[in-house]
Every structure is written in structure tokens, then in C-alpha cells.
Simulated assay, not measured.
Amino acid sequence: MTAPTTFRIGGDLEVRRLGFGAMRLRPDPDEKAHVAHLAVARRAVELGVTLIDTAHLYGWGANEELLAEALHPYPDDLVIATKVGIRHTTAGEGWRHAGDPADLRVQVDEALRRLRLDRIELLQLHRLDPAVPIPDQVGALRDLRDEGKVGRIGLSEVTAAELAQAQAVVEIASVQNRYNLLDREYEPVLKACEAAGVAFLPWRPVAAGQSGARAEIAAVAKEADATPTQVVLAWLLAHSPVIVPIPGTTSIVHLEENVGANAVRLTQEQYDRLNRVAATETP
């Protein structure tokens, strides 16, 4: 099977379909570890990755700052996508929703400063704030887009109904939900994205690295002369033309393995076998 190699987010922002999730990269007081994390980000670009995903939540801005240190000035074809809508707190899980329009404005300005950008080409709402009406949250991002600070607007962890509510207010360019071969809870959201031409960026795209434990996946990997991780990424690329996986790692070896999935070509029979793996069998 031959899958498209690129996707135009929002209809015009072309990226290669296998991106990089930078979540695990952090500045480190140990100089050797810090340099290693910088090297991973730089190697991703060397390997042809043109979409890197980050967020304020990832180290409360530290991840964004590390990417700027590693990659600024950015290559012309590189898209740094980030996320807002969450603030740090010392209670509970360590974070809280922050979808108030005034706060979102401040968060975008902070992200622009940390990333050393004048405009964020893809800005995603990390979580919908249940205390703020959806039109108010996405409306604030629409206003920022109209002011030129944001290029395109995305959502994360939403239902198909919530996506539709947001689309009634502004064009949605991407959705980032948990999704992989073994976890297809958000299949209805993927179908809604397909219908609207919205990019679907699955996080945890390789089932937390557990795919090799599944006999069928291991068998296809052996047949394809690939690793199980590469096979499940190849399945995602074949499964829908709007899927843009963003696997993450702190290892250059694993990064190169992930990007190598671009070269894996599944036969129709192999794809069908993988597609029958029970979606309810989460690792």
C-alpha cells in the first residue's frame, strides 16, 4: 500500500506526515543530558521532520524553550505546533484548565516569547475548559488568528460533538487525540476529521511501545523486515490520509527507528490483518 507522504494542515500548511512529539525533551542541569536532548531535536529536522509538537504543559514552557535553543532560527519548512489552555497548580494533578479568553491571550504571548516566534502556525487548545463555553474559548483563538499571532487553530482530546461545536465558530485545522492500532476509542473523531479534511495528530501512536508483544504485529514486522514500532506507525499512515503521527522519544536511535516507518510498505493483506487486531486490547 502506498500512502501520501505529506498533508496540508488547514488546506495550505504542508508537512511531512510523520512528525515528532517533543514532550519528553527538557533542559537538564546535567550538561551532557541537556546536549543530548538538543541533539534529538536537531536530528529530527535532519531526518526530514517538518512538524514538531510541543506545549506549555511540557515542563511549563521548558520544552518550548529547549526547542528554540536547539532549532532557532527555524528552517523555512519547519512547523512548531504548541498548545495552550492549561496552567500549573500545586493541587491535584499539578495542572488546571485555563480557557478564559483573557488568559489564553496571555498564554499565546508567552508561547511566542519562549519559541522566539512572531506567529504560531498551528496553535492547539490542549484541553477544553469545562467552565468556559466552547465558543468563548475558540473565539479567543480566532481573534488571535485574525490579529496575525496564530496561523491555524487545533484542538486536543475532544469528542466529535465538541469538534462540531468549535467548527461552528472557527475553522479547525487539527485534532490531537489519543489513538493507535490497539486503542481506537476516538475512531468517530477520526472519521469526522476525514470528512472535514482536518489533520488528526494521534498522541501515543505506538501504544506506549508495547506493540511488539502482540503476535500479529510481530509477525507482520518480521515479514516487512521492520520493527513492531515501525509497523504500527506504517499502519497509521495507511489507515487514513489525514493522520499525522507525532511519536516522541529522547533517543536518537528510537527517533531514527520511528522516522524509518516512512519506508515501510504494508501489503493490503498485512494491513487487513493489522486492522483486525482488537481495538479493545489495550497494552
Score class of each variant (00 low, 15 high):
residue 212 G to W: 00
residue 154 G to K: 11
residue 178 R to P: 04
residue 184 R to K: 03
residue 145 R to G: 07
residue 273 R to I: 12
residue 115 L to G: 06
residue 68 A to T: 10
residue 43 R to P: 15
residue 36 A to Q: 13
residue 234 A to M: 08
residue 259 V to N: 05
residue 53 D to E: 09
residue 145 R to Q: 15
residue 108 V to A: 04
residue 13 L to M: 13
residue 38 L to A: 09
residue 153 I to S: 03
residue 48 G to W: 00
residue 97 H to L: 14
residue 34 H to G: 03
residue 264 V to Y: 05
residue 180 N to Q: 02
residue 95 W to F: 14
residue 131 A to W: 06
residue 4 P to V: 10
residue 239 H to D: 12
residue 277 V to A: 00
residue 25 L to T: 01
residue 228 P to D: 04
residue 44 A to M: 07
residue 278 A to M: 07
residue 159 T to I: 03
residue 232 V to M: 03
residue 269 E to K: 01
residue 52 I to P: 14
residue 103 D to S: 12
residue 98 A to K: 12
residue 249 T to K: 09
residue 271 Y to H: 09
residue 167 Q to R: 15
residue 127 R to C: 03
residue 235 W to Y: 04
residue 21 G to T: 02
residue 247 P to D: 09
residue 94 G to M: 07
residue 36 A to N: 10
residue 139 G to W: 05
residue 179 Y to S: 09
residue 116 R to D: 01
residue 273 R to A: 14
residue 65 E to G: 02
residue 64 E to W: 00
residue 21 G to N: 06
residue 243 I to G: 06
residue 30 D to M: 00
residue 25 L to C: 00
residue 51 L to R: 11
residue 248 G to P: 02
residue 173 A to L: 11
residue 24 R to M: 06
residue 249 T to S: 12
residue 140 A to L: 03
residue 175 V to Y: 01
residue 283 P to D: 08
residue 283 P to V: 06
residue 262 N to R: 14
residue 85 G to I: 05
residue 243 I to P: 07
residue 74 Y to Q: 08
residue 234 A to Q: 07
residue 124 Q to I: 09
residue 250 T to W: 07
residue 39 A to W: 13
residue 208 A to D: 15
residue 168 A to M: 00
residue 242 V to K: 12
residue 121 E to H: 15
residue 192 A to S: 09
residue 212 G to I: 11
residue 72 H to D: 15
residue 75 P to D: 02
residue 127 R to V: 02
residue 139 G to R: 14
residue 262 N to Q: 12
residue 123 L to T: 08
residue 154 G to Q: 08
residue 39 A to N: 09
residue 19 G to P: 10
residue 227 T to G: 12
residue 202 P to C: 03
residue 136 D to P: 03
residue 201 L to N: 06
residue 268 Q to N: 07
residue 106 V to F: 09
residue 39 A to S: 13
residue 40 V to I: 05
residue 257 E to H: 11
residue 25 L to F: 00
residue 78 L to Y: 01
residue 14 E to P: 13
residue 70 A to M: 06
residue 61 G to T: 05
